[in-house]
Nucleic acid binder design. Structure first.
Lengths: 222, 222
DNA sequence: ATTATCTATAGATCTATAGATAATGC
DNA sequence: ATTATCTATAGATCTATAGATAATGC
C-alpha cells in the first residue's frame, strides 16, 4: 500500500478515522439517550454533550436530529439482527429458529437492557418494514410455510402477530423488572408455536431445548 | 333545581359549559394532531390554532403539553373501550369475546382511522398498564382461564402477547392501506385462539360467526 | 362582579452557521 | 495546506404569563 502514486489521497487515513470515531460517539450517545428516555425528545446540545463533542461538530455529520435517530435506530436493529443470526447460525428447523429467536430476544431485556429499550421504542413502526430484523424473520416464517412446518397463513399477518407479541412481552418485562424473563420468553415461544399450528406438547418439548451459547457470537460494541 | 338558596353558585352553568366546550375543543384538536402526525411533536400554538382557541387559554386548562396528551390518549382509550363493551355486551363465551374484540379492533383501522392511529401511538406503553382497555381484556383472559375455555398460562404474558399481536396487525394495516382489514383481522383472531389452545377448525368456525352490529353502540363523539 | 378568553410579550430555549482553533499530511 | 473540530452567536422558535377584552350572572 504505497501512496507514491497518489500524492494527495482524498482523505488521509488518520483524519478519516478521527471523523469516524466522532460519528460513532454521536450515534452511541444517541443510543444511550434513546434507551434512557421515553421518547426522542432530546436536543442536539444534549447529544453532543453526552458524546463529549463540540456542539457545531454535529452538523458536520448529520443534517438534522432525525437523521441521527434514524442512524442510531437502524444500527441497533442491524446489530441485534446480526447477533441473532450469528447465534442461530447452526439451526435448520424454522420452528426452532422462531422459538430460539423469541427466547433470546425476550432475554435481551435482562442481558442488554439498552438494546431492548431501543427496540421497544423503534417498536412496531419500523420493526415490520425495516431492513435487518423484519426480512430475516419473514424468511423464517416463509420457510416454515413452504416446508409445512408452520401454518403461517398470510406471512405478513403472521409476522405482524409474532413481532407484535414479542414486543408486547418486552414491554411487559420492561414494566416488571422482577419478572423472570427466561420463563416468560419461553412461555411466549410455546404460545407462538401453538399459534402456528404445533401441538402444545411438541411445542413445550421444542422450547425445552438448550439455547445456543448466547455470548459467543459477534457482539458489535454499543 | 332552583338556585334561590344559592345566590352565587360556585360556577354559573353557562360559563361552566363554555369552559368545558373549550377544553373539549383542545382535546379533540390534540386527538386530530396525534392521529395525523407520527409523534407528539406539536407545539401549544399548533394545538390552540387547530382548536381555534386563543393561545393563552391553553394554560387555563392544562399546565403542560404532556398533560394534554395524557388526557387525549386516555380519553381515546376509554372511548374505544366503552364502545367495544357496548357492542360486545351480549357475549358470554370468553373465547368469542376475544375473537370479536380482535375482529372489531382490526376493522377499526378502516372504520375509524383516527382512533386506530392514536391507539397505535399510545401503543404498548400504556395499552398494557392503562385503565380502560387492559383491565377489561385481562378480565376476559382470566375468565377464559378459570373456565378452562382458554389455555392462557400466565395472564400477563397472555395479555402482552395478544395485545402486542393486535397492535402489530394494526401497524400492518396502517402501512398497507389496500389490505383487506376484515380478512386480516379474522385471520389474527383464529391465530390467537389457536395460541390459547383451541383446535384450528373450531377457531375458524367461531370466527365465522357474524359480528354484532357495530354501529349500534354508544359512540362518543371525537 | 366574576370568570373565561384573547392579545401581546418577556425570557428561555434551540437550531444552524460563521469564524477561530487544533490536528493531520506533505 | 487541508480537514475536523470547537466556540460564540444570530435568528427563530416556543413557553408561560401579564394585562386587556368579552361573556355571563345578579
Amino acid at each position: 500500500m504505497t501512496d507514491a502514486l497518489d500524492p494527495q489521497p482524498a482523505r488521509p487515513h488518520r483524519a478519516l478515522r478521527r471523523k469516524t470515531r466522532t460519528r460513532t460517539a454521536l450515534i452511541e450517545a444517541a443510543q444511550r439517550l434513546l434507551a434512557e428516555r421515553n421518547r426522542a425528545d432530546m436536543s442536539v446540545k444534549e447529544v453532543t454533550e453526552a458524546a463529549d463533542v463540540g456542539f457545531g461538530t454535529f452538523y458536520g455529520h448529520f443534517t438534522s436530529k432525525e437523521e441521527l435517530f434514524e442512524a442510531a435506530m437502524s444500527l441497533t436493529l442491524e446489530q441485534h439482527s446480526v447477533w441473532l443470526e450469528s447465534v442461530m447460525g447452526g439451526l435448520q428447523d424454522p420452528a426452532e429458529m422462531l422459538a430460539v429467536g423469541v427466547r433470546l430476544t425476550g432475554r435481551l431485556q435482562r442481558s442488554r437492557p439498552q438494546v431492548a429499550r431501543i427496540l421497544l421504542q423503534v417498536g412496531l413502526q419500523r420493526l415490520l418494514s425495516s431492513v435487518g430484523l423484519a426480512p430475516r424473520a419473514r424468511r423464517v416464517l416463509r420457510m416454515g410455510m413452504v416446508t409445512g412446518r408452520l401454518r403461517t397463513g398470510d406471512v405478513d399477518v403472521a409476522l405482524a402477530a409474532a413481532g407484535g407479541a414479542l414486543l408486547g412481552l418486552m414491554q411487559l418485562l420492561d414494566a416488571e423488572p422482577h419478572m423472570d424473563a427466561g420463563r416468560a420468553a419461553d412461555q411466549l415461544a410455546v404460545k407462538l408455536l401453538c399459534m402456528f399450528g404445533m401441538p402444545y406438547e411438541e411445542a413445550e418439548a421444542l422450547v425445552a431445548h438448550p439455547l445456543p451459547a448466547a455470548g459467543r457470537g459477534v457482539v458489535p460494541r454499543a
